[in-house]
Design a protein around this nucleic acid. Sequence first.
DNA 1: AGAATATACAGGATAACCCTGATTAACAGA
DNA 2: TCTGTTAATCAGGGTTATCCTGTATATTCT
Lengths: 214, 214
Amino acid sequence: MTIKVFLADDHKILRESLIILLQQESDIEVIGEAADGHQALVDIQRLKPDIAILDISLPQLNGLEVAARLKKEDPAIKIIILTMHKNEDLVARAYQLEVNGYVLKDNALEELLKSIRIVQAGGIYLSSDITSTVIAGFVANFGKTGGKAELISSREREIVQLLAEGNSNKNIAQLLNLSLKTVETHRSNIMHKLGLKSITDLVLYAVRNHLIEP
Amino acid sequence: MTIKVFLADDHKILRESLIILLQQESDIEVIGEAADGHQALVDIQRLKPDIAILDISLPQLNGLEVAARLKKEDPAIKIIILTMHKNEDLVARAYQLEVNGYVLKDNALEELLKSIRIVQAGGIYLSSDITSTVIAGFVANFGKTGGKAELISSREREIVQLLAEGNSNKNIAQLLNLSLKTVETHRSNIMHKLGLKSITDLVLYAVRNHLIEP
DNA sequence: AGAATATACAGGATAACCCTGATTAACAGA
DNA sequence: TCTGTTAATCAGGGTTATCCTGTATATTCT
């Protein structure tokens, strides 16, 4: 019995290449493909693959939304997210949706094959270079806040935005009538909670989460 | 005589897949690969492939900058840009660099093979879906970019990207084999030239100019 | 040749970062 | 109600990083 997989990715070159290579595996069979979220949703519900492999940045309906709708209708469906995004928030959202795998495109092809077999066997697969701290932090928060995990507090989010807008710690302290030390503490906590390594990462986080516009 | 190609793309899954499939073509031989711009530049100059296939969004040094440096050293080198971006400004910039091919990742694999053979034969290949945007872009940009002085130098652009990717001055100095003080000077000059007040402004500049992806 | 630019490097001042603390208020669970 | 957790506030003190002001050489442009 082969593992029937469905592949949704908007880049045809990658889609075609992966299908050719997946077909060469004796235990894997690609039974369908899609280039956008709507088509993926319709075809996956019709073809009922064992595993749906979804890119996040799909046109019309993003991969996480497709995953959410599939899981809502059939919580047993197996989903692997295949994406270039190692953004903490997206990983957390995927985790919330209880997807079965999260594989980065800059990992080896071998990782994808491994994830398919592990997920088919009932396991959960996460790319090794996704920071464990984010997952740990997320798991720690999950359930205590009623389902929706807020990684950072309201005050912290306010400071994220001010930082991403180019304000210095000193500046923020003046704006918010706080001690410089308080701002430093917030900043440090934010970096740890979000798993960011530099102010640059913070700006990108803010852009991705629409706290500021590029 | 086979066509010797070099492939640079930061997504290992795509890179691996493409190499396997390109190797199956009897007239094509992949003689090297790279996951970042620096490695690509060094290896391409060392291995001297017939055609260099470059993604635009490469870490450390983006594909267009790699193309510019390769063309400067050897104007006869053949370059195919393989990218997800169909922005007219990126296409126009590629055209100014006189690259030999521009293929979109959402085209078929067959397109890439065709582009390799056409470019090897001395032709220029453009993905069919960007023909209209490229024409529009040229009409709009023609004349403007003729003698317009670049705001920042090639070296500075390289450092902008490394900064926006979250590297510290120290880190960049090591990567480029420069003194820390040199990197600091470049950084300062960049900020003044571009009228930026903070590193976050620089990240936003890099995002807007597609030096990095949000 | 002269001017402008790119590239490279230094010293000293300022700001940010890191780690280990502390206090107070709010709030949830046993 | 007591206890534990989190949010929010602040501090000392040491280590790094960044900013500002200069200098110098090679290359490129006119």
